[in-house]
Amino acid sequence: MGFSPRQAPVFLAAIFAPSILLVGLFIVYPVVNSVGLAFTDASPLSSGRSFVGLENFVYLLEDGEFWEVLWNTVFIVGAATIIATACGYGLATLLISGIRAAAIFRAAIFQVWVVPWIVIAILWGWLFSQDYGLVNYLLMQVGLIETPVKWMFDQKASQWAIISGYAWRAIPFIMVICLAALQGIPSELVESAAIDGASFLQRQRYVILPLMQNIIMVAALLQAVRFFQEMTMIFVLTQGGPINATMVLSLYTYKTAFEDWDFGLASAIGTVWLILLMAFALLYVRVALRRNLA
């Protein structure tokens, strides 16, 4: 269906012009140009730039720091995505289980999604403050720890402080998507399973989860993509420290480019990042296709 483009070439050119201009000038050109810069020693501090071949890439792959950053990114983004998805799905299941005032609960939880990242960064600094922070106080009250944790000065602890912030912020998004999908499951399916004697867990495992699998995957992936880009919390709280424990790809590229002013190396990092993304996308499409065929 739809109109033939031949009927209105001028009209079509006019309505596509703004976005073609924006995308061409400020997405396609910068990406292509930056990938080109990765093979140079470009820097805004020096006027000339020369071709250095694969030097930046060789440096990067031989440098232990890059692999460390890559692993940190995968760990922080992965852990936050898994936690947010599990909690978001769990909450959606709870809210649909016939409790009273579910709409009010949903609206209240949704408020978390409204909090800007810069606010989360400041707020987490206060919550995880070593001496007066609420988190240390509560953990000590419950008896999980005996002395206050130095959240921002311990490598593992700082990673978990960041992960908790990421996960907290993403829970409402996952919850809203899961809730919508859960409401779309025909009630006859679940009821007939119940009549056949399936317990709550069995219904989850054999009826609901298989139906939800795809939508959960999509929601988690979207969230992971956003986490990859996000760096406000880390920039404000730790600057990537202590000893690079919270240094993630986005902050690492940013710092290399705009603090060290090494555009060549930063472009190389960004290019590797882009290649990894494409590899992952190809892999994902393959797996998804195979599953659909099976």
Binding site: G2, F3, S4, P5, A8, L12, V23, F26, I27, Y29, P30, V31, N33, S34, V35, L37, V225, F228, Q229, L249, S250, T253, Y254, A257, F258, F263, A266, S267, G270, T271, W273, L274, L277, A281
Partner: peptide, 28 residues
């Protein structure tokens, strides 16, 4: 509304561009 050639490819590009490294864009 219009049967454009490569309509799906354009949409896929838009979707994929969400994941592009923003710092990489910013350099250029």
């Amino acid at each position: 509304r219009y049967r454009l050639p490569g309509r799906n490819a354009i949409l896929m590009f838009f979707m994929a561009s969400l994941a592009f490294p923003i710092p990489l864009l910013m350099i250029s």
